[in-house]
Design a protein around this nucleic acid. Structure first.
Length: 661
DNA sequence: AGAGTGGGCCTTTTT
DNA sequence: GGCCCACTCT
């Protein structure tokens, strides 16, 4: 059934305001102006993927598609916001009705409307990773198993198993069989844990990240009226970073597109770096089979990097056996000064000193700090650089590590609001209970059992030591649940801070003042929302790059050097890029090197890292690394940094005399 | 019994 | 910095 649809002609000569020919190259133009139907765009790094998607949205609207009939799925909410903003600048239309965001945020939006159809309340709260893990461990205990038993998976591993099962739509049994064969003997126990885990989330009216996708898909599958409604609504679905979609996300798109068949999937298999989350770039491969009549467009012109950087990138990725061949070429002139540098250093401290010194020189050459990024495989690889930059008072912005929302004080305050919005939120209740003196896990659980058994909140009897603050909580709870404050998150936060949390913070945290300022940030952010549920959902779904409240407020206003994991640098670019800690076992990570697929994914990650650079690329590795407790360990240079003669400039920096002599 | 504290050990990537 | 474990305090 092919539906001749959309691109309805408003007149025989539509008023076209945008000069697509002049704004796009031939490849991009072909994608942007493609006829209705499924389109697969294979877009190399730096080839103007965002530009293509942006113009496609504008093109659709200029040709008469209503904004609310467009769904734009992106990897971060920020990416979606920026694209839509650019569409808004191209067109006079009101584009606020376009549906845009991450899979998780779109799923959240659907579920807020229809959660009742699944037996959830539309006021469900969203668990972050820590909460989810706590719940998994609690479920393990509830099955009667001993959490100290070394043969059982730890909380983090349980989460991996549950998450992989959800994202690949496989059973626990097959995930364990395929990915965790050493747990084969206890698979029935793991299934039992999972059932309790799942049921408890439902009882508590909470969802974890995976549940958002699972239940959104279930909603569409099980409810024909709802499915039809959205299938008809979304005439055009555009998906960015398609190579990083997993099974459940692909199914979500396929189902939504089953009526209009108009999906534009944009991706690059060479940049698929989320397989541990179930991402499968074969979604790209099988797209034409799932959407018969797919038009394929390749965009292979790179506008970002110098030819020297691109040569290195192409060489690096060529070592992978599993990839679609492509020929990414640069538009920039060759420049002998832009040859990438490979620098060998004694240890991580010297590496940090080298980077800082080089950045100071670049500054003297007129480079702005916000045009420089330091990229690494794992958060803790950046430690020495952070210390050195702090010592030299160089402003930097950390795009990794703890997210704002994950800090204890932010989570504490949010828990008060969560419990007010959703009194079935067990984790929020227990978190607050645990703040009270003399109340630990056991006591909190007893109190929760009473509450779940029908006791009123005010009638609970905490231990004597906790009586005063507990009473304060009961009053605060009533206050923020009352009509005049309901939904007004910013004012609710203020009440919580004044009535309870400030006193707690003073005794608990040495840096009380700076945490109080964080909470001020949180209040300011909360003012953007009309309902507390929306504020809490946004907080849980926000990524570091989305630009909500920040951890590094004291540096926020001035230009900063960007420190980031490679994963979080996806889609971004800088004039100057340092890729650091290029040692075998660190990048590629030890655990990834055990399988061919693992190593190839690390290589794609390396490819993503080097293709972030426009003008200058520095690859650095230390020869030794201070390990956590013992003496320094020798490191082999990463298998990714052996290049043919002449591809890089190689430097070896000799040890400086120790600072104290 | 359960809460709180301090030392040892290890660190992938995230919505 | 975080997690786990063992130990001490209430």
């Amino acid at each position: 059934m092919s539906v001749e649809y959309v691109l309805k002609k408003t007149s025989s000569h539509p008023v076209v305001r945008i000069d697509y020919r002049a704004s796009l190259n031939d490849e991009q133009y072909a994608a942007v102006t493609a006829k209705p139907g499924p389109i697969l765009v294979i877009a190399g790094a730096g080839s103007g993927k965002t530009r293509t998607l942006t113009y496609r949205v504008a093109y659709l609207i200029e040709n008469g598609v209503e904004p609310e009939n467009i769904l734009l799925l992106t990897f971060t909410n920020k990416a979606s916001r920026e694209m839509l903003e650019r569409v808004g600048n191209l067109l006079p239309h009101d584009i606020s009705r376009i549906w845009g965001g991450t899979f998780h945020s779109v799923a959240n939006r659907l579920l807020r409307r229809h959660a009742n159809a699944l037996g959830f309340g539309s006021d469900f709260t969203i668990l972050d990773r820590d909460d989810t893990q706590d719940l998994a461990v609690a479920a393990l205990k509830a099955t009667g198993l001993d959490p100290k038993d070394k043969s059982l998976p730890k909380g983090a591993v349980l989460l991996e198993i549950f998450g992989l099962a959800a994202n690949t739509e496989k059973s626990i049994t097959s995930v364990v069989g395929e990915n965790y064969p050493y747990f084969h003997g206890i698979v029935t126990q793991i299934e039992a844990i999972h059932r309790i885990f799942r049921d408890r989330k439902r009882a508590d009216n909470v969802m974890d990240y995976d549940d958002l996708l699972v239940y959104a898909l279930q909603l569409l599958r099980d409810h024909e009226d709802i499915r039809k409604f959205y299938q008809e609504q979304f005439q055009h679905i555009l998906v960015d970073e398609y190579q990083d979609t997993n099974k459940i996300q692909a199914d979500f798109i396929d189902l939504l597109a089953a009526f209009h068949h108009q999906v534009m999937a944009v991706g690059d298999d060479a940049q698929s770096i989320y397989s541990w989350r179930g991402a499968n770039f074969e979604n790209v491969l099988t797209f034409p089979q799932r959407f018969p009549g797919t038009r394929e467009v390749r965009i292979e012109t790179n506008y970002r990097s110098t030819p020297e950087i691109l040569t290195l990138a192409n060489y690096a990725i060529a070592a992978n056996t599993r990839q679609f061949p492509k020929n990414l070429h640069s538009t920039r002139p060759a420049d002998k000064f832009s040859k990438p540098a490979l620098i060998c250093l004694q240890d991580a401290n010297q590496q940090a000193a080298f980077i800082c010194q080089r950045i100071e020189e670049l500054q003297e050459e007129g480079i702005e700090l916000n045009e420089i990024a330091i990229l690494y495989r794992a958060h803790f690889h950046s430690m020495e650089v952070q210390m050195e930059m702090t010592r030299r008072q160089m402003p930097f912005e950390l795009l990794s590590g703890l997210r704002f929302f994950e800090q204890a004080h932010v989570k504490d305050v949010a828990a008060f609001l969560k419990f007010a919005v959703n009194p079935r939120d067990e984790l929020a209740f227990k978190r607050i209970s645990g703040l009270m003196p003399g109340v630990g896990e056991r006591t909190a659980d007893k109190l929760w059992q009473k509450l779940a058994g029908g006791a009123t909140f005010a009638s609970l009897e905490p231990p004597a030591r906790a009586a005063a603050p507990w009473k304060q909580w009961v009053e605060t709870h009533a206050q923020i649940s009352a009509d005049d404050l309901r939904g007004r998150a910013s004012e609710q936060i203020l009440v919580v801070i004044d009535a309870i949390y400030q006193d707690y913070m003073k005794t608990k945290f040495p840096n009380f003042q700076s945490r109080l300022e964080d909470l001020g940030q949180l209040r300011a952010f909360a003012q953007n929302f009309e309902r507390t549920e929306d504020f809490l959902a946004q907080l849980a779904l926000m990524t570091n790059v989305d630009g909500g409240p920040r951890q590094d407020r004291h540096l926020a206003s001035q230009p900063c050097i960007r420190l980031s994991t490679v994963h979080q640098a996806k889609g971004l670019e800088w004039k100057i890029v340092f890729v650091i800690m290029l040692c075998d076992g660190l990048f590629p990570a030890q655990r990834s090197m055990e399988t061919l697929e693992g190593e190839e994914e690390e290589r794609r990650l390396f490819y993503v890292a080097v293709t972030r650079a426009c003008d200058e690329l520095y690859l650095t590795y230390p020869m030794t690394r201070a390990s956590a407790s013992f003496e320094d360990r020798w490191q082999e240079p990463s298998r990714f940094v052996s290049f043919p003669r002449g591809m890089v400039n190689e430097w070896k920096i000799k040890a400086e005399p120790p600072a104290w002599s």
